[in-house]
Simulated scan of single mutants.
Amino acid sequence: MIDSDYEERLSSAEDKETVARRSVQEIMEERFNKPEYNNWHKFNRHYGEPKKKFRKDDEAEDKSDAMDSFPDNSDEETWEKQAEYEYVCEIIRKALKEKQAELLIAIVMDGVSVTDYAKREGVSVSAISHRMETAIKNFKKVFPKSSTFPSSQG
């Protein structure tokens, strides 16, 4: 291995007197360890401790847990859920008449009980149940199969 490395470097060198034999460790470092480390470092250099905020020398050392360096995505999740809700409501409103759509949205999506909805509308519970059956039947005519994908994925 040492001889083949020496011969290879000797044939490619311009100044043949400067080429010296290397140890096995030096050959292994150049051929295997250094390129592997460089590839690893290229992809993993940003992992590790979060960057600490700039501190002047006269300020006390920051003893925080650095959690303020990480983004808070809870608002985004809420916005995504709200957008999903609005999208589904829009589909229902386009597919059904106004009263049927509002009935379906209130009971199925918002979780309002049939009794509470009947009181709010000033009609009997059985009337709301019949309207609900009609609304579901009309909705199934437009959308006969349910999708397993969220609306954001089509």
Rank of each mutant, 00 (worst) to 15 (best):
M1F: 11
L10Y: 13
M132N: 00
P71Y: 10
V125C: 00
T18L: 14
C89P: 06
R45W: 15
L10C: 02
V19C: 08
R9A: 14
P150Q: 01
E59L: 02
G48F: 08
K94T: 12
H130N: 07
S64E: 00
Q153A: 12
K94E: 10
K119L: 15
A20P: 06
Q153T: 10
S23H: 09
F143S: 09
D68E: 13
P35R: 03
Y37R: 02
E102Y: 09
E76F: 12
D58Q: 02
Q153L: 15
E7Q: 13
H46E: 05
S151F: 15
F32K: 01
D116R: 03
K52V: 14
A13Q: 00
T148R: 05
E121Y: 09
K140W: 00
S64R: 00
D75M: 12
E14T: 07
K52N: 06
M1I: 08
V142K: 07
I136E: 01
R93K: 15
S11A: 15
W79G: 05
D62P: 01
S126F: 03
S69R: 14
I92N: 01
R93I: 08
S147E: 14
A60C: 05
S23C: 06
N38L: 08
K140N: 12
A20E: 14
D75H: 07
S124F: 10
N38K: 15
E8Y: 11
V123S: 03
F70E: 03
A135H: 03
Q153P: 04
I128T: 04
T115H: 13
V108I: 15
K42C: 05
V142D: 01
C89N: 03
E86Y: 13
D68T: 04
G154K: 05
E80I: 14
E121T: 08
K34D: 11
Q82G: 04
F43P: 02
T18D: 06
V123Y: 04
R31I: 14
R131D: 00
Y47V: 11
K99H: 10
K56C: 04
S152T: 12
V88E: 15
D75S: 11
C89L: 02
A83K: 07
G111E: 02
S64A: 02
F149P: 05
D68P: 05
S4G: 10
L10I: 06
K81C: 11
Q25K: 15
S23Q: 04
M67W: 12
E17P: 04
T115D: 13
D116L: 04
E77T: 12
G48H: 03
K56W: 06
P50L: 07
S126P: 06
I128E: 01
V125D: 10
S23M: 10
V108Q: 03
N39P: 04
F54A: 09
K51E: 13
I128R: 02
F149I: 11
S151L: 13
S151V: 14
S23F: 12
R9V: 07
A101E: 01
V142H: 05
E36K: 14
D3I: 13
P35N: 01
D72C: 05
A127V: 02
N38A: 13
R131Y: 12
A106M: 04
A66S: 12
R120Q: 14
K99I: 07
S11P: 09
V19R: 03
R131P: 00
R31F: 06
C89M: 10
D3F: 11
Y6N: 03
